[in-house]
């Protein structure tokens, strides 16, 4: 059964966006990512204009992350205080990131810088999480120390520096004590990068919470979803208000799948260990990295594409 989309100006088989929503919602519930890095390119492949794909996806993430946050909150896996501090940072970072894009565009070849930043961040984050979780799984199995090259000493040096900052706050849900500045600064850092790359940044926020804020993986997922929810509300409004690119019909089809997917993901996530979740997310991020590298190096079949806005 086909449905016509009033903003994307195209017709789509409704099974496809519902199925797509289900898969990406599952990832949200499992890993605490918005899944824009998967959803947006897939929607473009289905013939949705790029600007509509990105804006509509953020509308859909509002639903998926509400569903996911709710599910995680019920089992006590959302650290609202931490989420709120990350949000403050993310908001400020987003403002800087938008200015950063303007500067990049004025300097020319902005697309090159953006794409390279994206590939490098995906590659580094994916590889680091992959290696780290494999090593800690080995460690847990053998019960002895596995040399972690230089990373533990560097980590502890950072940890010592973080301890010396003012505004030390205890985050009960996460069971960690940090200066409130830490989530604000790192939330800001992710906000800058996410705005420049034009993505939600869940794949950056999750490792920041795991490795820098040292939060337990299950609380990371719930808190990340809470944080994503607010970011996507803001983005959806701005896209609808300034660019008129949110396709409500498409968003409804996607959220039919993604809200249910997020619930299923949460249930699955509870059955998996933190290390298993990390390694799965690392593999997905690495697969996406490889796919983008392929796209960058293979000659495209069409050299022209729809420009943004209308």
């Amino acid at each position: 059964m086909y449905l016509y989309l009033p903003v994307a100006l195209t017709s789509i088989n409704i099974i496809i966006p519902i199925g797509l929503g289900l898969v990406v919602g599952l990832l949200s519930g499992l890993f605490g990512v918005g899944g824009g890095f998967l959803m947006t390119p897939l929607l473009i492949m289905l013939g949705i204009p790029a600007t509509v794909a990105a804006a509509t996806d953020s509308n859909q993430i509002v639903a998926a992350s509400t569903s996911g946050t709710y599910a995680h909150w019920k089992v006590g896996n959302v650290d609202f205080k931490m989420g709120f501090h990350l949000l403050i940072g993310g908001f400020i970072g987003g403002l800087f990131g938008v200015q950063g894009i303007k500067i990049l565009r004025a300097m020319g070849n902005a697309d090159f810088v953006i794409k390279m930043t994206y590939v490098l961040m995906l590659g580094i984050v994916g590889a680091y999480m992959f290696i780290e979780s494999i090593q800690s799984m080995k460690k847990a199995r053998k019960g002895d120390d596995v040399p972690l090259t230089e990373s533990p000493s560097r980590e502890s040096a950072i940890a010592r520096l973080l301890k010396s900052l003012p505004l030390q706050t205890h985050y009960e849900k996460s069971g960690v004590t940090h200066s409130a500045l830490i989530p604000i600064i790192f939330g800001g850092f992710v906000g800058v990068l996410a705005a420049i790359m034009g993505v939600g940044g869940g794949f950056l926020m999750v490792p920041v919470m795991v490795y820098i804020l040292r939060m337990p993986m299950h609380v990371v997922v719930g808190t990340s979803l809470f944080q994503i929810l607010f970011n996507c509300i803001e983005v959806t409004f701005l896209q609808a208000y300034t660019n008129h690119t949110v396709d409500f019909t498409l968003a409804v089809l996607l959220l039919l799948g993604s809200t249910i997917g997020a619930q299923i993901g949460t249930v699955f996530g509870r059955k998996l260990k933190g290390e298993q979740l990390k390694i799965l997310l690392a593999v997905i991020v690495l697969v996406v990295t490889v796919k983008i590298i392929f796209e960058l190096t293979m000659t495209p079949s069409l050299l022209l594409s729809q420009a943004g806005g209308h």
């Binding site: 509002v62 639903a63 569903s67 509300i233 949110v246 968003a251 409804v252 959220l255 997020a262």
Partner: peptide
């Protein structure tokens, strides 16, 4: 659009 998404998320939850 946002309200519908929020309601759908809560409803399914």
């Amino acid at each position: 659009s946002i309200i519908v998404a929020l309601a759908a998320g809560f409803g399914v939850g």
